[in-house]
Design a protein around this nucleic acid. Structure first.
Lengths: 109, 109
DNA sequence: AAATATTACTCTACCTGTCAAAGTAATATC
DNA sequence: GATATTACTTTGACAGGTAGAGTAATATTT
């Protein structure tokens, strides 16, 4: 399991990517992250919902209520046009970050 | 300039790498980071000295005073054996983090 | 000689993202 | 009816990073 304070700052990107594929609800995103990373990373519930609040306030995602299925009512999120632009920035930023940190990790093992 | 809250969590690794090359003092590390990254990233003074304190308390680095040269007295840091082990962990962790985040950035631009 | 720039480190108060813990509520299964 | 699972919310705390202000010594400019 990768420590989450090292993923910190990249959660917006991860979550936005999943929402940009299709509208999703919180619990689903949490499961999807575990699945895709093979449990190498799991997002904490409290963290996930905090991200939603932050992104919604900034108009990067917007919410609507969906079905009540097998449990609590689902709250779906969709990405806004502003959110798409933001995600695209984050992708660029990630490749810049990789370059920079790699500079310092080179030659070590 | 890359936002620093996205580098957050990797500062230990960057600083330790530089100290592991040779003993260094704070101001030097700050200059070296700017130099190597071509000013794409600059560490803030307050942050740098906060990292020193944290790492010293954990026995990952240790300090000794050097010359007073062209200004304030220099405080040099050297990496301890524990620090070397820690750095080696951080390098492994970095490659794990890259894999995970890349999973979610794939196919986007 | 005085003023300014540069080198070099320290401390405090604050901000932000993450998260443990506890809670609410509905459906499915035993 | 009890338990498990799905699903979301809120509160309070913590840790890392940072602006800003301060201290102090040497070098350069005026």
């Amino acid at each position: 399991m990768v420590r989450s304070d090292i993923i910190r700052g990249h959660l917006d990107a991860i979550i936005l990517r999943l929402i940009s594929e299709k509208d999703r609800y919180g619990y689903e995103i949490s499961q999807e992250i575990s699945l895709r990373t093979n449990n190498r990373f799991q997002i904490k519930e409290a963290t996930l919902y905090a991200v939603f609040q932050r992104l919604e306030k900034k108009d990067i995602i917007e919410a609507y209520y969906g079905d009540v299925s097998h449990g609590g009512k689902r709250k779906y999120y969709r990405i806004t046009p502003l959110g798409k632009a933001y995600l695209s920035e984050l992708v660029k930023e990630w490749s810049a970050v990789k370059e920079i940190i790699d500079l310092f990790m080179e030659g070590l093992e």
